[in-house]
Design a protein around this nucleic acid. Structure first.
Lengths: 110, 110
DNA sequence: TTTTATGTTCGCAAAATTACGAATGATATT
DNA sequence: AATATCATTCGTAATTTTGCGAACATAAAA
């Protein structure tokens, strides 16, 4: 009984990708990447969704390790998790760089 | 009534990320990236899931534009969509590169 | 101690995802 | 024309995701 049928790298990359698989979460990361830190309230104002939903998306990104938060009562401060962000950049770079696209056209061309 | 509250880039990046948000689909791309083309049967053998499910994952990747397929009766040949693959590489590179991680630690440190 | 401000969690509903076997379709081959 | 091969689609079920408002929790401020 294997832990998984896929490699650790594949699992990890899929986890990062899944966390980024929603425009709201991309927007959150875009926003956070522009500053050192920011408060929940600012993120919430930036997005067209209810605060409960924003909180959910933040939790998803946090569980994937892409961001982190800390309480600064009564506010909550969020930011990019640099360590894992770098890891994600490496994994995506490796993954997306492995296709040998020498010719301009598609692989399936006759 | 806007088409979307997010930018085109954010939507597109999220679409690519969502398509890559499952280890089976990462594995499929890893496999396809290693060769010019390959048949459904080969992909199917590589994965620990039923062929109906493999077909679903292939459809998901195809709809996101990351791969493409063509019939070579009675088989079906799949491959990376190089054009969009390059686009994905650019978008992810830009996105993941935008965090200014000058210091080693986390953004949230005091 | 009682407000007030700020986010999270709860409870719920709708929709999407994941997975499978069975049925179907499409096309070579016999 | 009948058969065999290969992959998709159908039908179904279980789970997860997304979204919201209301209720709750926490800690600062009055």
């Amino acid at each position: 009984m294997a832990t998984s049928d896929y490699t650790i790298k594949q699992e990890l990359l899929a986890k990062f990708a899944k966390a980024l698989g929603h425009p709201a979460r991309i927007a959150i990361c875009d926003f956070l990447a522009k500053q050192e830190t920011c408060y929940f309230g600012e993120i919430n104002e930036e997005l067209p969704i209810a605060k409960a939903t924003v909180s959910q998306h933040l939790t998803a990104l946090k569980e994937a390790g892409l961001i982190q938060g800390e309480i600064e009562a009564p506010k909550v401060k969020y930011c990019i998790n640099k360590e894992n962000w770098r890891l994600a950049r490496e994994l995506f770079g490796e993954f997306l760089g492995q296709c040998v696209c020498k010719t301009g056209g598609s692989c399936c061309e006759k």
